[in-house]
Simulated assay, not measured.
Amino acid sequence: MARRYSEKAQEKVGEVMHEFKRGKLKSGSGKTVTDPKQAVAIGLSEARKKGMKVASRAKAER
């Protein structure tokens, strides 16, 4: 069963993936992100911080 995210959260992840594909996305340490999974995680994290509807993190990730 796939997770459901709000439209705004999906847009945020899309924006982050666009930055990633252009090579402009930076991680918290300031290094350029090279892993697409990390880019998605950053997008979801930013969406959570803005209060968008995003599924909670898996227990293994905590």
Rank of each mutant, 00 (worst) to 15 (best):
M1R: 04
M1A: 12
A2K: 07
A2F: 08
R3M: 08
R4G: 06
Y5T: 06
Y5R: 12
S6W: 05
E7F: 04
E7L: 06
E7M: 04
K8A: 15
A9C: 00
A9R: 00
E11I: 01
E11Q: 04
E11S: 01
K12Y: 00
K12P: 01
V13M: 01
V13F: 01
V13Y: 00
G14M: 02
G14F: 02
E15K: 02
V16F: 03
V16R: 00
H18Y: 08
H18P: 02
E19G: 02
F20T: 01
K21T: 07
K21V: 09
K21D: 14
K21A: 08
R22F: 05
R22V: 10
G23S: 13
G23H: 08
G23A: 11
K24C: 05
L25T: 03
K26R: 15
G28R: 09
G30S: 10
T32L: 13
T32M: 06
T34R: 13
D35I: 09
D35Q: 06
D35A: 11
A39D: 02
A39K: 03
I42W: 00
G43F: 01
S45K: 14
E46D: 11
E46A: 14
A47D: 08
R48S: 09
K50F: 03
K50W: 04
G51R: 02
G51V: 13
M52S: 03
K53P: 06
K53V: 07
K53W: 11
K53R: 12
A55C: 04
S56R: 10
S56C: 03
S56M: 05
R57M: 13
R57S: 15
A58V: 02
A58Y: 11
K59N: 10
K59E: 14
E61D: 15
E61V: 04
